[in-house]
Nucleic acid binder design. Structure first.
Length: 576
DNA sequence: CTCCCTTGCGCG
DNA sequence: AAAGCGCGCAAGGGAG
């Protein structure tokens, strides 16, 4: 390593033999280059991490970090060029003329294939996408310079610095959670399936309770051969039995009064469990006591994460009991109470809404303020305000919020108006919504022409309102995602600082990087699950709470609002 | 057979 | 068929 100066940043790029390494000082000025062969690369990175704790600059986190984690090497900080490019090229804070907007080769889709996260360095080219970002160091260095310039010259450098750092930290967390996995008790899962559906039957036959449920439906329909799994056929059977519904969805069926309804709703519930999270899912997704989904940071336009494979973000509450800590370990399960309305209060500076939220259930606070009568009304009204409800009970309640919390409502109303007019909106830290599609714009201009038909106008108005609801929600959902990223990033650092346990206390199935340490195991928009040795469970829970306070301060400074958490330490993730 | 779309439902 | 946002996935069914 023999460099005299400590690098603040290290740019990594692929070469035929291994990796090119470019050392930058704290001001990102280059002062050295090296080439490291594939064999010693992991230990070189590990040594550099210990010695300098640099920020690693690379083209795509999973393609570098998965292999490091497989060898037990973690890094504290990185700059993910692909993710940060996606933010900066769209951000309204960035100058229209910034070079980062023109580096089109970095406009690459997220890597969602499991191969991209495979734990081998450089073995991926054969299966990699041709459209991926450039993997070489000079391209990375050039893009890094463009990104730094874009941030330095933008309207609010501090915000984009925070956002790009948080997004990059999220990329590390996503890779780490995949490596560690969510502790999953396959026997408990099987027990739930057997209790609910009946014993598994060979050859794909329906388990007994599901089959019995199907028979009850057919009996009530008076049709012994009715097909229940094909929507068109089921709809026809229902019509023949006199149940005149327009769809077979649960909510519409629930409004009907007919002997078939109760067993049919039960059948649909059981059938869903079997097809989505039955034994096939268990065999495919749970190995060695862990569920290892692919998390996709930045996979949603608003900045929320998506997932790929295994339905990681849709795990039914029914199965939470199967999420079970290893022996001698615990889960810290924490979720934020009413994250989005709290974020709305903070970003709009609405001190009345903040006061309603402070130190208590936000919906109870709204009731106490007299705006609405019940907690349920408060919840419906708030959701309606953030989603743009116009009709029904929700639409009826929203005007009351507009009177009680004018600043908060003005923020979402303005976002909706901007979207309806074809404009773009941004989150608190500067993630910006996509521009309207060409089809959308064409429909709007067509509707203003003299020869426009009534249908043209109706469609244009409907599309405008649709887009208004999207931008209305974008600013809140996206800022909540930023808060959650900051929470996650700070929590990750706090957990890494907790002491390791002795080898005999290890949970080896979490992999070499995490077997002896508290680690993040799951993240879902406003909830985290930490897997921790029991002796550190209290400290891990405290870290979760402290990280929330840090996130609030990072985003909103001293604005008087707390983000309340429900934190519990348990053996399973079961919710009460 | 593959591809693509729709439906319905799980999550926040 | 949700009224009211954002997703992913399984299954059916039609087109080729």
């Amino acid at each position: 390593m023999g460099v005299s100066e400590a690098p603040g940043w290290i740019v990594l790029g692929r070469t035929g033999r291994g990796a090119a390494v470019i050392l930058l000082d704290a001001n990102a000025e280059e002062f050295g280059r090296d080439e490291v062969e594939r064999g010693p690369l992991t230990s070189w990175i590990s040594d550099a991490e210990v010695r300098w704790a640099p920020r690693w600059v690379w083209h795509d986190t999973p393609q570098w970090y998965a292999a490091l984690l497989a060898d037990g090497v973690r890094v504290a900080r990185c700059h993910d060029l692909r993710l940060c490019h996606a933010i900066l090229r769209e951000s309204a804070l960035v100058s229209e003329t910034a070079a980062v907007r023109r580096s089109r080769e970095w406009d690459a889709a997220p890597h969602v294939d499991a191969e991209a996260a495979a734990p081998t360095l450089f073995e991926l080219d054969a299966v990699g996408r041709p459209s991926g970002p450039p993997p070489d160091a000079d391209a990375a260095l050039a893009e890094f310079a463009r990104q730094r310039d874009a941030i330095a010259d933008c309207a609010a450098p501090g915000r984009l610095r925070l956002l790009t750092a948080a997004e990059s930290a999220g990329a590390l967390v996503a890779a780490e959670m995949r490596a560690a996995g969510l502790p999953w008790d396959a026997e408990a899962h099987d027990r739930i399936l057997v209790e609910t559906l009946g014993e598994r039957r060979p050859g794909g036959a329906q388990p007994a309770k599901l089959a019995a449920s199907a028979e009850r439906v057919r009996a009530a329909l008076g049709d012994p051969t009715a097909s229940l799994d094909s929507q068109p056929k089921l709809l026809r059977s229902l019509h023949r039995a006199g149940v005149l519904v327009d769809s077979t969805s649960r909510w519409e069926l629930a409004e009907q009064r007919h002997p078939v309804i109760e067993p049919l709703l039960e059948y649909k519930k059981l059938s869903r469990l079997l097809s989505a999270n039955g034994w096939t899912w268990l065999a495919e997704w749970v190995a060695d006591g862990r569920f290892r989904p692919v998390f996709v940071p930045g996979g949603v336009v608003t900045g929320r994460w998506a997932s790929s494979g295994g339905g990681a973000l849709q795990l039914p509450r029914q199965l939470r009991e199967a999420v079970r800590a290893d022996p001698g370990w615990r889960l810290v399960v924490a979720d934020v109470a009413q994250l989005e309305p709290r974020v709305l209060a903070a970003m709009s500076g609405d001190t009345a809404l903040a006061a309603a939220a402070r130190g208590r259930d936000l919906y109870a606070g709204i009731v106490d303020s007299g705006a609405v009568a019940t907690r349920q009304e408060a919840k419906i009204a708030i959701l309606g305000a953030m989603y743009g409800a116009t009709t029904g009970e929700s639409g009826r309640l929203v005007p009351r919020l507009r009177r009680a919390y004018p600043r908060a409502m003005a923020l979402v109303d303005d976002a909706a108006r901007t979207g309806e007019d074809g404009g773009i909106v941004s989150t608190w830290l500067g993630r910006t919504s996509p521009a309207p599609s060409p089809e959308w714009s064409a429909a709007q201009s067509r509707a203003t022409e003299a020869e426009a038909s009534g249908a043209d106008e109706t469609r244009a108005r409907r599309w405008a309102r649709d887009r208004g609801r999207f931008t209305r929600n974008f600013v809140v959902q996206g800022t909540a995602a930023e808060w959650a990223l900051a929470w996650l990033a700070d929590l990750r650092g706090r957990l890494a600082a907790l002491p390791a346990v002795p080898a005999e206390r290890a949970a080896p199935r979490s992999g070499p990087a995490f077997a002896r340490r508290p680690h993040l195991a799951f993240f879902l928009h406003d909830e985290v699950i930490v897997h921790t040795p029991e002796e550190h469970a209290d400290a891990a829970a405290q870290a979760v709470t402290d990280a929330a306070a840090t996130a609030a301060h990072l985003l909103f400074g001293g604005f008087p609002l707390d983000f309340r958490l429900d934190v519990r330490i348990a053996e399973t993730a079961l919710k009460d």
